[in-house]
Design a protein around this nucleic acid. Sequence first.
DNA 1: CTGAAAGCGCTTACAG
DNA 2: CTGAAAGCGCTTACAG
Lengths: 332, 332
Amino acid sequence: MAVTLAEVAAACRVSISTVSRALSDPDKVNPQTRARIERIAQQLGYAPSRAARSLVSGRTDAIGLLVPDIANPFFPPIMKSVLSRARDKGYAVLLADSDEHAADESELARDLGRQADGLVIASPRTGETELAELAAQFPVVFVNREVAKAENVVIDETEGIREAVEHLVALGHRQICYLAGPRRSWSNQQRRTALARACTELGIELTELGPFEPQIQAGLRAADLAHSGGATAVIAYDDLIALGMMARLTERGMQAGREISVIGIDDSPMSAVAHPMLTSIHVPAAELGSAAVDLLLARLRSGESSAPARTVRLETRLVIRGSTGPAPVDRR
Amino acid sequence: MAVTLAEVAAACRVSISTVSRALSDPDKVNPQTRARIERIAQQLGYAPSRAARSLVSGRTDAIGLLVPDIANPFFPPIMKSVLSRARDKGYAVLLADSDEHAADESELARDLGRQADGLVIASPRTGETELAELAAQFPVVFVNREVAKAENVVIDETEGIREAVEHLVALGHRQICYLAGPRRSWSNQQRRTALARACTELGIELTELGPFEPQIQAGLRAADLAHSGGATAVIAYDDLIALGMMARLTERGMQAGREISVIGIDDSPMSAVAHPMLTSIHVPAAELGSAAVDLLLARLRSGESSAPARTVRLETRLVIRGSTGPAPVDRR
DNA sequence: CTGAAAGCGCTTACAG
DNA sequence: CTGAAAGCGCTTACAG
């Protein structure tokens, strides 16, 4: 079917080796014959067999990307930057989605790992031990989770969360409710810890509801719970929960920023759709993806063991919009 | 590094051929030795080299998926169903995103095609001729676009659009404005044609604005244009434009379903976030993806030429929510 | 600068 | 039922 090196060689009346060199290591070949070979290869529509090349090189020139849920708007921006960075560097991307099933992550990752040179695993829910095993087996970079001795790209929400709490305090809120994400989520732990510290330092009372799945549906449920609980301000685990909460408030004739203030985390593009627009903690999604690819490729280049595992930490900041406002007087 | 057939063979004291057969064609091998081989292969953690297998079989067991923009919520549900169906059938998925650049599609598709057994291309913007060339070069299934002589899975919006127009007529609207999508978009053509016919048949006046990019931002712009144009109802090319329009209306103190009715197309999950919730034409995204994979694998199995190209057509229907309401009396 | 040859890890007729 | 051998399409020392 496809044109092979042998056919090009025959057409050029040179050996296979020469064609191979002319195409992949041009300096080692006479400029004139090289030019001729290149021309003829072009005419014949020669494209090297990936499988053959891979068999001898031991590389696949592909990386695997594992995500818990493509439909969660948090991930597409990360994925897009992974794709574009990978492509720039000559790598294809194999995709898998665990559909939020922690139990499937390991198997999916292993399958990907077998077909790729390395893996980028976003927001894994799997236990630390299992992830460490994965990282021992394949070159892996974790995104949005810090696994000991592995390479990670994480979000440092300390600053963004502190800004959020200060913002609420300035608006007169004295009690904040955290709408927790999945119990086993690493970033949920990070966020609640950062929040607890900020509240303590600023002398604010902190309560918690949840856990909630990172889905709009869960946010609807959260809204009624939070409101009946008497909170004047909530910070949600993510934008989806926050947006769901706002939708439910509106449905009940209330409005975020008036009866109750709502802050999300992620600052996904959807924030602009809600009314009022969602105040959210901005997470640099694009950098998350490109940093992950850079880290992974650096590791592949350095040949496994050499460099010590690194964790890249990206900053967050608060983006203020309409869903936060003064604490209502009667509830303050 | 990885365990090879030869190592397993040595450990079992049989030939490579026997190990190969025991593992991939068990019937051809003595049950007892087979059991022993399987056990030892397992112990050694043997996993066949994809590259080697691919080199002899000529297959990659991967399919390529090309999408114009992962961040557009229309695509993730389709992608998820492609991923899950492909996995069920033992195929990996290579992903590429053209970032809405029609000019890059062909090259991306060609690159994917070289590394996969076949391609699923969603909503391509490229010209018909070029797509036909692609389809001649690789096994391809187009999603959301009908390319002559190729395999396609498309949406038949006739029914959904007719329901939408009937719905608006019942609410007293007599003039509908279509917020057009990208000029070269195939589904934009489909939608405006279906809309024109429905309006003619129901004696409704149809105007058009645009083209607009399928993004929230474009919807904001569309809102002011549509409102100043005097329309009492709009049908947008997709949910993103519709949602952007609603956000802008709210910003200006108006509300969809009151001053102006808004209908989207796609019925993406985001529809539930807006207030009021968006009336939209439901598109069966999951079926779109699985049908595409089924069609592609059928083609791969049948070995190219045999079966004639098929087009699978999926039905749409209107989902009524709060963004449509009676035509305002003063403008009617 | 160029060619012959070995080898990457499998699968699969072909003998036995 | 099992083994020896050829071959899939490349790359890369090794000679010349």
